[in-house]
């Protein structure tokens, strides 16, 4: 008997596509990250230092061209900026919060940031995440902490449809492999 088709002939492997590539995956090395814990009168002071008010609604963000504050909890934010800008940010926040109870911590090295973009980014994440990430409910000013394939992530939507996934660096390799596997059917382009 002749074998006409090997079992894996139809499987798309990382780096290959089975049509127009629907996903671009990037390792965004690196993104400046500052954890901010503050409450009460410190909220206003922190807003002055940042140049915009901290987002108080759960799972929302606020920001300007320099940085973006992501709500992590009722008194906790992750402030995201270009790598190299975090030292200045920390200095400004620490100076402004001198008399208010606070914690300002450089956590830039704590998380890797994987960017998944392209028309099929959302269906890929839907395979491993229970959240509805449609722009109808997860718009440009949103952020969410959740699980993707059981790994803890912070999900930040990006302009033009796509997401930055902030993941503990020890999980980054695992999540990267999972995304390659989950996205293979849509075609993946690894960038950067």
């Amino acid at each position: 008997m002749t074998v006409e088709c090997a079992p894996l002939d139809n499987v798309v492997r990382p780096g290959e596509t089975n049509g127009p590539s629907g996903i671009a995956l990037t390792d965004r090395r690196f993104v400046g990250q500052v954890n901010l814990r503050v409450r009460g009168s410190g909220l206003t002071a922190a807003g002055h230092a940042l140049g915009y008010a901290l987002p108080m609604a759960a799972n929302t963000t606020a920001g300007d061209a320099t940085s973006r504050a992501c709500w992590l909890g009722p008194d906790e934010w992750l402030i995201v900026c270009d790598d190299g800008k975090q030292a200045e940010l920390i200095q400004q926040l620490s100076a402004a919060l001198a008399i208010d109870p606070n914690a300002v911590t450089d956590v830039t090295d704590a998380r890797a940031v994987l960017r998944i973009a392209g028309a099929c980014a959302r269906p890929v994440l839907a395979k491993g995440c229970t959240l509805d990430l449609h722009p109808r409910v997860f718009g440009a000013d949103r952020v969410a902490q959740s699980l993707i394939a059981r790994a803890q992530v912070m999900i930040l939507p990006i302009e033009g449809g796509g997401y930055d996934l902030f993941v503990a660096r020890s999980f980054a390799g695992y999540l990267w492999d999972w995304l390659l596997d989950a996205g293979a059917e849509y075609g993946i382009r690894v960038e950067g």
Partner: peptide, 11 residues
């Protein structure tokens, strides 16, 4: 009470 309804696996 902060984030709204989420799947049990997150808790």
């Amino acid at each position: 009470p902060y984030c709204g309804e989420r799947a049990e696996g997150e808790f």
